[in-house]
C-alpha cells in the first residue's frame, strides 16, 4: 500500500443545505427546492442522484428532478414512503438537510443531440426523467422531436401538473398520459403505459428512448419498444437500487459486477442485457 498514490477522501460528510421551496405535488409527493451553502453549484448531469440525510432519520438516494440549467438551486421530488422521507415531508422552507453527491453517471446528453427523444416515464419515474426533459427543453434547438409518455395508476398521482400544463401548450412537445385506474373525472387515455407505444409514429433509427419507472415496468416497455423496432443501442434506462454509500463500497446496489451508484443509475440498454438480475 505504501507505494500507491491516492488521495484519501472523507466520503460520508454531508453538505448541510437549505430548503428554499416546498410544493405539494400529490397526496404523497412533494417537490423540495434546495440550495447548497454559499451559492455552491451541485454541478450535476440529468439523471444523477444525491444522498439526502436528516440527522437521526438516516440517509437515502434521491434523484435530482431539475435540470442543471436551474443551478445553483436544484429540486428533489420525494414520495413519503419511509422514516426519512416522512420526516422530509414535515420540513418547511428554511429547514436544513444533508446532501452528498451528485453520484452516478447521468444521461450522456451530448449523444442525444440532433435526435428525437422518447421519454417513457412510469409513476415517480417522471421525477428523474424531468431533469433530462427540462434540460432538453432548455436547449430545445439541439434536439429533434420531444415525445413524453407518462403513465400513473390514478389521476391523483400525476406529478408536476404545472409543467404538464406547459408541455401540453408547448407545440414542440408531444405528450401522452395514460391512467391505469381512472376516476369518473378522467377524460384521457386509460391503460398501462405500454399501451401508448404501439400507436406512435417514430423515426426509430433517429430516436433515443429513455425508460424510468417502477421495477415491474421495464420488461414490458422494452418489449413494446422492440415491437416498434427501436434499436437496443438507442435505449437508455435508469435503474433503482438501495444504496447506503453512493461511492461504490457498501455493495447494496451491486448488479453482477456493476455498482449502480457508480456505473448507473442510467444504463445503456446493451449493457443491461449483459447483466442478470437487472430488470
Amino acid at each position: 500500500m505504501e507505494n500507491l498514490i491516492f488521495e484519501k477522501k472523507d466520503l460520508y460528510n454531508p453538505i448541510i443545505s437549505t430548503i428554499t421551496n416546498v410544493e405539494q405535488l400529490t397526496d404523497t409527493e412533494k417537490r423540495f427546492e434546495i440550495a447548497l451553502p454559499e451559492n455552491q453549484i451541485l454541478n450535476h448531469k440529468p439523471g444523477q442522484f444525491v444522498q439526502v440525510s436528516i440527522f437521526g432519520f438516516g440517509e437515502a438516494p434521491i434523484s435530482i428532478s431539475s435540470s442543471p440549467t436551474k443551478s445553483p438551486l436544484f429540486d428533489l421530488t420525494v414520495r413519503n414512503a419511509g422514516r426519512l422521507t416522512d420526516k422530509m415531508h414535515r420540513l418547511t422552507v428554511g429547514s436544513q438537510l444533508g446532501v452528498r453527491g451528485p453520484f452516478g453517471n447521468g444521461f450522456e446528453v451530448n449523444n442525444f443531440k440532433g435526435k428525437d427523444i422518447l421519454f417513457v416515464c412510469g409513476g415517480i419515474g417522471l421525477a428523474p426523467t424531468k431533469s433530462l426533459i427540462d434540460y432538453v427543453l432548455a436547449n430545445r434547438n439541439d434536439f429533434g422531436r420531444v415525445v413524453i409518455l407518462y403513465g400513473t395508476k390514478s389521476p391523483s398521482e400525476i406529478l408536476f401538473s404545472d409543467e404538464i400544463e406547459k408541455w401540453k401548450k408547448d407545440k414542440s412537445v408531444e405528450l401522452e398520459i395514460s391512467i391505469d385506474r381512472p376516476d369518473e373525472n378522467w377524460k384521457g387515455k386509460v391503460g398501462v403505459i405500454t399501451t401508448l407505444i404501439p400507436p406512435l409514429k417514430l423515426d426509430v433509427a433517429n430516436t433515443i428512448a429513455t425508460i424510468v419507472g417502477p421495477p415491474v415496468m421495464y420488461k414490458f416497455v422494452l418489449m413494446a419498444l422492440k415491437g416498434k423496432r427501436v434499436p437496443d443501442e438507442n435505449i437508455y434506462l435508469s435503474l433503482e437500487r438501495r444504496m447506503k454509500c453512493g461511492v461504490g463500497k457498501c455493495g447494496h446496489c451491486q448488479i453482477n459486477d456493476t455498482y449502480v451508484c457508480q456505473d448507473g443509475p442510467v444504463f445503456h440498454y446493451p449493457r443491461v442485457k449483459e447483466l442478470k438480475e437487472a430488470v
Binding site: 491516492f6 477522501k9 466520503l11 460520508y12 461511492v247 461504490g248
Partner: peptide, 21 residues
C-alpha cells in the same frame, strides 16, 4: 488485507479505512 486495500482505494479512496491502514 491487500484485497481490502484494493477495494477501499479503487474508485474513491476512503479515508476511514486508509487512515487506519
Amino acid at each position: 488485507i491487500k484485497r481490502l486495500d484494493y477495494s477501499f482505494i479503487t474508485g474513491l479512496p476512503e479515508s476511514n479505512y486508509l487512515t487506519r491502514r
